[in-house]
């Protein structure tokens, strides 16, 4: 079967990209290997582990369960887009560092993207809310406790109150 190539124009972390890709190229592979934004990680390629989570027009989605061509005309945000241009970490990134919310760091990109979208919608989450929000992201290292604490602290910091 001759490759079915498609033009793709996307904005990723505020930067416009134009590229072409096979119809079957997964969005995760496109980000990592075509755009060389390798901060998005791939863990299962069947939509369970959540490591590949990115924001599509601000909404958290599995990039392994989308085709690159489907992103044409959309805005994406990845882990590379969370810190400011001068390198300042986002409140969530800072809280993850402060609370030891990562060990090997492989699931971390997906967790950051999932929670970034979650905190946009839920400014004052309970611990149960946070655990529910994290339930689609597998972490094998941390036992989640420090991630939960980091998310609660980030929410507090974003509200401008001491955690």
């Amino acid at each position: 079967m001759t490759p079915d190539r498609h033009e793709i124009a996307v904005t990723v972390n505020g930067m416009a990209y134009r590229s072409t890709a096979d119809a079957r190229l997964l969005l995760s592979d496109f980000l990592r290997h075509e755009l060389r934004l390798a901060g998005t990680h791939v863990g299962c390629e069947h939509g369970v582990c959540g490591a590949c989570t990115v924001l599509l027009d601000g909404i958290a989605v599995r990039s392994c369960l989308m085709l690159a061509v489907q992103a044409d005309g959309h805005e994406l945000t990845t882990i590379e887009g969370l810190a400011t241009d001068d390198g300042a970490l986002s409140p969530l990134q800072t809280a993850m560092h402060d609370h030891h919310g990562l060990q090997c760091g492989y699931c971390t990109p997906g967790i950051l993207m999932t929670v970034t979208a979650f905190l946009e919608e839920n400014k004052s989450p309970s611990e149960d809310d946070v655990r529910e929000a994290l339930s689609g992201n597998l972490c094998r290292c941390t036992g989640y406790q420090n991630i939960v604490d980091a998310v609660l602290a980030a929410a507090a910091a974003m509200r401008g109150v001491a955690p």
Binding site: C64, L65, L67
Partner: peptide
Amino acid sequence: FLAGGQSLIPAMNFRLSRPSVLIDIN
């Protein structure tokens, strides 16, 4: 038809499903 793709794409990634045409309705 490709809608959300949350069941279809995993099946395709496992190559359990091999449609020759995907009609994206998104």
